[in-house]
């Protein structure tokens, strides 16, 4: 490794600041030390925004389909502290979503109407479509295992940039207020909880990379949200849901 320049020393203050300065850093990166490393990651998110264990009200998952296009893009900077250990920070854009069609029994829900709330226990079919786009800032400890392998673990903080959580219920019945309330058949009713979602999410990240050609590595990642999707006062869905997504992608190390 070459000795560090003053410019880099200045940037040592933290990975997040580094990230914010990334474009300018890159422009002046020709004479930087190899203890800094920059990557561009791209991949595909696959997973679910799901309760940790399915509540008993969900009787059957009829269909699960990942979002057609659920991309992940990241800019990553790693500051190597020594041969094996480094600290990485990323700036990422993540599309997290899927569509699920399930059968529910006596699921308590509350749908906002103009001036009232439609409250009751629904039994029937439900389709939920989630297409959320997050901007997030992960900070990771990076461990180089060999020339080809490295693993990472850390945290992320994410901002829900484009919320999309909606769906419909059909072919069932709703009982007013509780399972013993007056029962009414429901053909089709739609719901949109997009704006009810928490604007922030945070969680843990685990990732691994293996170089397969030159600067290219195959990247796998698991991100596990620790903050429920909806605020605690939200009663449209009675169980807590978390963003739990895997990622398969490619990482490209920049020669700078």
């Amino acid at each position: 490794m070459k000795p560090m320049t003053n410019k880099i020393l200045f940037l040592k203050q933290g990975a997040i600041i580094l990230l914010l300065c990334f474009p300018s850093l890159r422009a002046s990166a020709e004479n930087t030390a190899p203890s800094w490393e920059f990557k561009i990651n791209a991949g595909y998110n696959l997973g679910a925004t799901s309760p940790l264990s399915l509540p008993a009200e969900i009787r059957k998952i009829e269909k699960y389909s990942p979002s057609g296009i659920a991309p992940h893009f990241a800019l990553e900077a790693t500051r190597w502290l020594n041969e094996k250990w480094g600290i990485s920070a990323q700036m990422t854009l993540d599309h997290k979503g899927f569509t699920v069609r399930d059968e529910v029994k006596s699921l308590h829900t509350e749908i906002d109407m103009k001036d009232e709330k439609f409250t009751g226990n629904f039994t029937g079919k439900n389709t939920t479509e989630i297409r959320n786009v997050y901007l997030s800032l992960p900070v990771l400890a990076t461990r180089r295992i060999s020339d080809k392998w490295l693993v990472q673990a850390g945290f992320y903080l994410a901002y829900l940039y484009h919320p999309h959580f909606n769906g419909s219920v059909s072919g069932g019945s709703i009982r007013k207020d509780s399972p013993i309330g007056e029962k009414t058949l429901v053909d089709h009713a739609s719901f949109d909880f997009s704006k009810e979602q928490n604007a922030l999410d945070y969680g843990v990240l685990l990732a691994g990379e293996r170089v397969f050609y030159s600067n290219f590595a195959l990247r796998g990642q698991l991100s596990w949200g620790l903050k429920p999707l909806f605020p605690s006062g939200f009663t449209g869905i009675t169980f807590k849901m978390y963003n739990i997504y895997g990622l398969i992608g490619i990482s490209y190390r920049l020669n700078i």
Binding site: A48, I61, S106, I180
Partner: peptide, 20 residues
């Protein structure tokens, strides 16, 4: 994978809460 994941966690049906 998803079906494996979900079907493994479908719980036993809760006792019926209806009283009709």
């Amino acid at each position: 994978l998803a079906i494996l994941f979900f079907s493994s966690c479908i719980k036993d049906e809760a006792p019926n809460p209806e009283a009709d």
